[in-house]
Amino acid sequence: MSTLLEVDGVSVSFDGFRAINNLSIQIGEPELRAVIGPNGAGKTTFMDIITGKTKPDSGRVTWGDRNISLLGMSESEIAMEGIGRKFQKPTVFEDQTVRENLAMALRNPRGPFAVLFYKKTLEGAARIEEIAEEIGLSDSLTRKSGELSHGQKQWLEIGMLLAQDPRLLLVDEPAAGMTTAERELTTDLLKRAAKTRAVVVVEHDMEFVRRLDCKVTVLHEGSVLAEGSLDHVTADKTVIDVYLGRA
């Protein structure tokens, strides 16, 4: 397992509030990693920094085998480097069909003219079918994605991430609002995905994290509080203080 992403000493503050404080995390490839932490621990900001939405005040974010810096790259450039992101709220394009949503995410040239003169290919269609199968939406390809259930939208969004064929998947609270059955499917989906790539899951739900059965990083007040297996971190005194002390 080689290091894919290295976040080193990153800090960012909003109007004096330190959302991220000297944060350092390493993600390997392939790896499944869960990031947990109470509200305001900086989980979402951590994702914002990696995907280029927020520029940190200090620190380094290096990526890939050639150790390139992600800072200063635009969101779309970072996405093209192979980092996919799923938001907390399912954001699929509700006005368009499942197939169109997936087709947009397929790994193809992204320039306007390439897209304008884009022609559908058999491989593309096959890949869409394959992903639809994976996320359990084979029968819904021609449906408007706005008509899907909440869980299906979550899966579609994960499917769109898979279609991008990223090396790193950032997944923000995938299980929120899902039924127990849907959660199980989602866990399997993420575990399968993590076999060939790095997957970082931000989650609140301990039960879901336990089922993922992976290394866990606990964030608190913008920096890493503890790291290790779930059993290891839940036994940690400081973690208990932070979590249970609050609850």
């Binding site: 995907t51 939405k53 635009s74 969101e75 779309s76 450039e77 996405a79 093209m80 996919g84 992101r85 938001f87 954001t91 394009f93 509700e94 006005d95 368009q96 169109e100 087709a103 947009m104 995410a105 992204r110 320039g111 306007p112 897209v115 304008l116 884009y118 769109m160 991008q164």
Partner: peptide, 22 residues
């Protein structure tokens, strides 16, 4: 596909950005 992308930009610009489109 072009229509797909520009409609997607209309509906959620930043999501399209994270899909890798400029």
């Amino acid at each position: 596909k072009m229509g797909s992308v520009i409609k997607a930009i209309r509906d959620n610009e930043s999501r399209v950005r994270f899909l890798g489109y400029h």
